[in-house]
Every structure is written in C-alpha cells, then in structure tokens.
C-alpha cells in the first residue's frame, strides 16, 4: 500500500500546530457508507467565503490530502459541511474519515476553490451519481432561491446508500430518485429531453456517468454541460507539515517557516515586507513569484493549470511541498 510511504511525511503528532486548521465539530452518518463532517474555525470565526460547486482540500493527521465538495449552507459563515463516502478500495482518505476522524480533531484546510461554478441560466438539469450529489446540493438550494426552473435526477446503487434523501424530499417532484436496484441505470435521454438553449446541465458522479452525460449532450449547444470529476490529485510530493526553508533570492536572505506561522509572517519576520490584504488566499494581493521548489497551494484563486505551473503562490496561506522554496523577494 501507499499508506506507509505517505505516513513517513507526517509530522509527529499530526498537524495540530499548523496555521490553517479547522476543527471537526460533528460527524454524522447520513446513509450506508456515507458520513457528513462539519468543520469550524478553532476560534469560531468566519470561514473563507465559497460558492456552490466549491471544494476544499482537507489534510488529515495521517498526512493524506483529499478534496471534498462543500455541501452546507453558505449563509452560515462559521461552518463547512462535507459528505464522505467510504471507499474500501480507495487509498485511505475515506477510511480515515470514517474510522478515525472524530469531533474535536483538527484538519488542515486548503481553499475553498471552485472549478464547477453554477452559471446563470433560466433552467438547470442536475444529474448526480452517488456521492456526486454533494456539490449539487448547494447548487439546488441556489437554483430554488433564484426561482429557476430545475430538476434533479439522482442515482445510486440502492436507496439506503443514497445520502441527503431527507433534505431533498422537501423539493417534491423536481427530484427524481433512481436507485439502481429498483429502476436500473439512469435514463439520461429521457431526463434531458431534446437539446435546447438556455438550459445548463450539471453532472457529478462516477466516470461512466459523466461519459454517458457527455454522449447524451453531444447535440446540445456548446457549454450546455458542466461536469466535475474528482481525479485524485497526484502531487509530486505530499504537503510538508514540518518546517521548511524559504530563500528570498533578491534580498539574499533565508528563513525557516515553522508549522505555526504562514510564509507571509515568516518573510515579514525576516524584514521583507510583502503587501497582503485578505490573508485568506482570496484577494491575490500577496502573489509572489516562485523560482524553485514546489508550492503547496492553499489559495482560492489558481486553477489547476496555474497550480501545475508552480511559478507563483499566495504566501498568506500557501506553503511548501519541498523542503526548500526559492521566492523572488
């Protein structure tokens, strides 16, 4: 297993001293094999804002980092909620959440980021497969709030494994629940109907469902279909929860960043002022060019390609995957 290798990178005693940490405030079983985890800032303060479709990166005490869609209520500024499916064949993130994570524990946080935003439209067709319901839940709440015409087709292996049916029941006939053991595979052509403009189709679920949605929407106007697929983000190295060194090339200084301070704080401590503003990774003011090393991006701004480029980082929240980072400061 990969677990052994990954564990060797974890700090002794987990990540309890890191700066960007949230506390687990509740863990609830909501369906067979699905729990929701509620998170809050240790000081109970506001969490960074998010929009439906957003996800966060959570880093657990065993050193694993996993992405989860936010499925709570954005009007509650102090709480995040994620839903986690137990995947016995997975690489250890979900089993850790199900078996070891408990209220009171701290987890590392990155983001929120949104690669799956809800765009304005007159009508929405939502398609969820299994745990893929999570990013769609806040989208549905929003579509309802806006008075948009919307419908949801929600499939799962069997009814007992399908989370949030109670929350969805209130929407009445807009929601079609389709457990596979009762009705078979999702009938996308019937649900989607004929291609038309002004409708956005949102689909989240396992790869075969996304492929089926893409095939069924082939004749729809461009950009009608939006999908999200959680590929396990394979970082070259796991994020460091131990001290790392930052070299400030222009000023010729070096500074060690310990887990209890941000890079921004450490750099300021070394006498180099970098302008910042939000200190949440959302405004972009503290953008800093990276000359060497691999940043551990925790901001809400960079998309996947920009992250992969690795040429800049937001030092108010982002950290390092390598033991040395060289910054253009």
């Amino acid at each position: 297993m990969h677990e052994t290798t990954e564990r060797t990178h974890a700090a002794p005693g987990g990540m309890a001293t890191d700066v960007a940490m949230l506390r687990v405030t509740a863990k609830t079983r909501v369906a067979a094999g699905v729990v929701t985890v509620q998170l809050a800032a240790p000081d109970g303060g506001r969490l960074p804002d998010w929009t439906p479709g957003a996800h966060v990166d959570l880093t657990f005490g065993n050193g694993l980092t996993r992405q989860y869609s936010l499925c709570g209520d954005r009007w509650d500024a102090g709480t995040y909620r994620v839903g986690v499916l137990l995947e016995p064949a997975g690489r250890g993130g979900s089993s850790y959440v199900h078996e070891q994570l408990e209220p009171g524990h701290l987890v590392g946080i990155g983001g929120p980021r949104n690669n799956f935003p809800l765009v304005p439209a007159d009508a929405y067709l939502f398609i969820a497969g299994g745990i893929g319901i999570t990013p769609l839940l806040p989208m549905i709440a929003q579509a309802q709030l806006l008075g948009a015409d919307w419908r949801l087709l929600y499939g799962g292996r069997q009814r007992s494994s399908m989370a949030f049916l109670d929350e969805l029941a209130g929407y009445g006939e807009r929601v079609q629940v389709a457990p596979q053991d009762e009705v078979g595979l999702l009938d996308l052509p019937t649900f989607l109907g004929r291609p038309r403009a002004g409708v956005r189709v949102y689909c989240c679920g396992p790869a075969p469902l996304l492929a089926a949605a893409e095939a069924t929407c082939a004749d729809w106007p461009p950009h009608s279909l939006r999908t999200e697929r959680f590929v396990a983000a394979e970082q070259g190295a796991p994020a460091l929860s131990t001290p790392f060194e930052v070299e400030l090339r222009r000023s010729g200084r070096r500074v060690t960043v310990t887990p209890d301070v941000s890079v921004l704080q450490a750099v300021a401590g070394a006498g180099v002022d970098v302008l910042s503003s939000c200190r949440q990774g959302t405004c972009g003011t503290c953008e800093t060019a990276v000359l060497d090393g691999r940043p551990d991006h925790r901001d809400s701004l960079l998309d996947d390609d920009e992250r992969a480029a690795g040429d800049c980082m937001y030092i108010c929240v982002s950290r390092s995957c390598t033991e040395r980072l060289v910054l253009d400061l």
Binding site: T51, L118, Q142, E287, L301, C312
Partner: peptide, 19 residues
C-alpha cells in the same frame, strides 16, 4: 448579493487578476 453576485464577480476576478 450572492447568489446573483457570484458569476459576474468570478468573471471580473479572472479578467483583472494578477496573472
């Protein structure tokens, strides 16, 4: 306000972003 604010803001954030 959100939610109507979300999409136009997201577009401007990208168009006028540091990158």
């Amino acid at each position: 306000d959100p939610p109507r604010h979300d999409a136009p803001r997201r577009v401007l954030t990208k168009v006028l972003g540091p990158r």
